[in-house]
Every structure is written in structure tokens, then in C-alpha cells.
């Protein structure tokens, strides 16, 4: 069984991400299995919205918080549009598929600094897992 929980008073982004995760793990057995095996934490900062959330994974459960997670395995910093693009971009092995225009557009934002990902390369497996869990493409 997989559980998506919200900790504390959620901000709008925390509610959105929790809803997205809940729908995805409920409707997709592969994503539910992925969550069953995941342990670690991810922090997501949406600069232009001034909103931060944390995702804390223990096997079978993800807790979404409206706060930073010190020591997160992966820290994703982006604007709101890029965060939405990360959820809709076609993936290949859990990362944006550079063989598609949308995938190249997202990867290109790494070069311009519009998308920053901290914690790599050690956090690569967690990054691939969380992008897969949040993806709706």
C-alpha cells in the first residue's frame, strides 16, 4: 500500500504535488511500486512563486511538507513554468527525453540556469524516481 501524506499547513504547491502524487500512484501500478522502494528526500524551490516544498520518502509513503528539507538528496530550483514542464515532458529512463523537442527544452534550461538541480550525481536515482512519480505525460 502506498500513502501520500501532507505535513503541517500545506501551501498551494504542496497540495498540488500531493494531489498529483496521489493520483499517479493510485492510477499506475509501476509508480506505486516505485514509491514502495523509495527512501530519501527532495526539496523543490519555485523561485518566481516564492514557494518551497519538501518530499520525504520512506518505503510506501511520501510526506509532502511546506518547508525546506535540510540534507535533501536532490534540490530542484526552477520557475513555475519549468516545474510544470517537468511534469509533462516525455521521459526516457526517468529523465527528460532529449530526442523530443519538449525534452530538449527542459534540458536546455539547465544550461541557462532556469533549472538548477543540486545533489548530483549521487542523487541521480532519486531525481529519476521523483520525476517519474510526478510525470503525467
Amino acid at each position: 500500500m502506498t500513502v501520500v501524506a501532507v505535513e503541517g499547513e500545506p501551501n498551494g504547491l504542496a497540495e498540488m504535488i500531493a494531489g498529483l502524487l496521489q493520483a499517479n500512484v493510485t492510477g499506475d501500478a509501476d509508480k506505486a511500486r516505485l514509491l514502495e522502494s523509495l527512501r530519501g528526500a527532495v526539496q523543490l524551490d519555485v523561485r518566481d512563486a516564492g514557494v518551497t516544498i519538501g518530499l520525504k520518502f520512506v518505503p510506501g509513503t511520501v510526506t509532502v511538507t511546506s518547508a525546506a528539507v535540510p540534507g535533501a538528496d536532490v534540490r530542484i530550483t526552477a520557475d513555475a513554468a519549468t516545474v510544470m514542464a517537468l511534469s509533462t515532458v516525455p521521459l526516457r529512463y526517468g529523465l527528460p527525453d532529449v530526442f523530443t523537442p519538449d525534452g530538449r527544452a527542459v534540458v536546455g534550461k539547465l544550461a541557462t540556469g532556469e533549472l538548477r538541480i543540486g545533489g548530483l550525481p549521487l542523487g541521480l536515482p532519486m531525481l529519476r524516481a521523483v520525476t517519474t512519480l510526478l510525470n503525467v505525460a
Binding site: N11, G12, L13, M16, D48, A49, A80
Partner: peptide, 9 residues
């Protein structure tokens, strides 16, 4: 979209 993330919508 930003407004939803901020909880304003």
C-alpha cells in the same frame, strides 16, 4: 499557475 502554487487560487 503561480497563484495556485501560492495557494491564492
Amino acid at each position: 499557475i503561480k497563484a495556485m502554487m501560492q495557494g491564492k487560487l
